[in-house]
Computed example of a mutant assay.
Amino acid sequence: MEIDAIDRRILTVLQKDGRITNADLAQKVSLSPSACHRRVQRLEEEGIIREYVALLDTKKMQRPTTVFVEITLSGQADELLEAFERAVRTVPDVLECHLMAGSADYLLKVVAEDTEDFARIHRQRLAKLPGVAQMHSSFSLRRVAFTTALPL
C-alpha cells in the first residue's frame, strides 16, 4: 500500500491524538469527513494502524521504576529461543522484549514499583525463564525522551 502526503498527515495527527473525532481530523488534514473516514478505514484494514491504546502514567500507576535487563541464554537452539520468548510474554511487568545482536541475546524493558519489587520480579519470574544463563540489570534514573510516534 502506498502512503501519500495526506495519509502521513492523518497518521501524524492520530499518533498524537488517537481519540480525535473524524470531523476534527478531517479539518486538520483538509479533507471532507467522508474522505477522511475512508482513508482511516483503509489504513486500519491494511494494518498500517494496528490499534488504538491509552498510554498510562507509570508514576500514577505505581510503576515508576524502569529497568533494562540484558539476558544471555545458555544456548542458541531454536527450541530454546522459542521457549524463552513464549515464557517472557507471560511476565506482565515486561513491557518490551527484543532479540538482540551484540553482547546479550535479549533486552527487556521492565517496570516495577521500586527496587524491592524489581528484586521480586527478578527472583520469581526472570530468573526462572527458560535457558537464562546470565542477567545484567540497569536502572533508569530518569526518562529523558519518550514518544510512541514514528517519524513520518
Rank of each mutant, 00 (worst) to 15 (best):
M1K: 06
I3V: 15
I3S: 08
D4A: 10
I6G: 00
R8K: 15
R8A: 11
R9M: 11
R9I: 01
I10D: 04
I10M: 06
T12A: 14
L14T: 09
K16C: 01
I20T: 13
T21N: 08
A23Q: 13
D24F: 00
L25C: 06
L25K: 02
Q27P: 00
V29A: 04
S30W: 03
S30M: 09
S30D: 15
L31Y: 05
P33Q: 11
A35I: 01
H37C: 03
R38A: 09
V40M: 03
L43I: 07
E44I: 14
E45V: 00
E45K: 15
E46D: 11
R50D: 08
E51Y: 04
Y52F: 15
A54N: 12
L56I: 07
L56A: 05
K59S: 05
K60Y: 07
K60H: 06
M61A: 10
Q62H: 12
T65N: 01
T66E: 09
F68A: 06
E70F: 12
E70S: 14
E70A: 15
I71L: 04
I71Q: 01
S74Y: 02
A77N: 11
D78C: 06
A83F: 03
A87P: 06
V88L: 05
R89H: 13
T90C: 00
T90Y: 01
T90V: 02
P92I: 03
P92R: 01
D93E: 15
V94Q: 02
E96T: 10
L99G: 00
M100W: 05
A101P: 01
S103R: 14
S103C: 00
A104D: 05
L108T: 09
V111M: 06
V111K: 04
V111H: 05
E113G: 10
E113Y: 12
D114A: 03
T115N: 07
I121T: 08
R123T: 13
R123M: 10
Q124L: 12
Q124R: 10
Q124P: 00
R125K: 15
L129F: 05
V132K: 08
Q134F: 14
M135N: 05
S137L: 04
S138M: 14
S138V: 15
F139I: 15
L141G: 14
L141E: 07
A145Q: 08
F146Y: 11
L150D: 12
P151V: 09
